[in-house]
Amino acid sequence: MNRSEYKNVFVFAEQREGEIQGVAFELLGKARDLAKDLQEEVYAILLGGQDVEAKAQSLIAYGADKVIVASCPFLQDYTTEAYAQAITQIVTDYKPSIILLGATVIGRDLGPRLSARLTTGLTADCTRLEISEEKELLMTRPAFGGNLMATIVCSDHRPQMSTVRPGVMKSMDKDQTREGIIEKIKINFDESKFKVKIIETVKEQTSMVDITEAKVLLCGGRGIGTDQGFGNLQELAALMNAEVAASRAIVDAGLIGHERQVGQTGKTVRPDLYIGFGISGAIQHMAGMEESEFIVAINKDRYAPIMQMADLGIVGDVRQIIPALTQRLKSMKK
């Protein structure tokens, strides 16, 4: 492989039902930094149905220099094989140096399939991406749990591929005046490989909350204890216009849905204020909230790991503090 043939930073611009996902804009923001260091360009790959081209301009406004658009009924709804074929063709034709994908359900289904097809490396859930002096992509991710970080390189294979979770990178401000090129291409599909048939796609109401958007997040952990304890936390959150989230233990106990789980197997959040109630700070959890602007931890254990990360630590029993705090807020509202 001649590495020097591979140039430019590509972003897979994931769309669902024609809507470009926020993570695509975040990745474009990061791609701009990388392309600047490489003195190369940012390309967005936009795959979708008939009307998808209409969305291409927004990708330019968020940082793409060029948008490669393939619109075709096979690409309207994501399927592994059609998308893998499309991107494989694009990689063959355009020879990107880097491809970034969101670590979404789609990105995590597509990324590894592509890496195996293209025989190249894929680094999952990167929290930092930068260019080395040797012009290599340095991909940093939490290793084994989160406290240990590993910087990973893919020296001998191209493209260098990474997935990044939604909320980890920052998108640039939308700039409607930015100019770019939209390039329509045609994919030559091998339809005989299309073996998975979508019967239906269903959105569920319960999953509509997005804790990654919350400004104030009250997060309950094992120390909350019971149903009752969690109910109290929800009451408190309502008083503060905050959203409720939870650690894995609480989600596993069935007290709340997985869509509100913070941590390595849940969501990465960075609210203005995070308050951990009875959260000890397992490394997997902290990997998902350490970028929060201000962290308050309330825990019985003075030496719980979260106390070392908190901007404000309160040593105490959340089962007493939550009702007392609720009471106080209520009386203040009167």
Binding site: M139, M149, A150, T151, I152, M309, L312, G313, V315, I321
Partner: peptide
């Protein structure tokens, strides 16, 4: 393996803020 670990490091403990051991009120 196309990917190699170039380096591994601990994040370093963020300096802790203030911790209070006080009663509930």
């Amino acid at each position: 393996s196309p990917t190699k670990v170039k380096k591994a490091f601990t994040k370093g403990v963020k300096s802790a803020g203030q911790v209070y051991e006080v009663d509930t009120e």
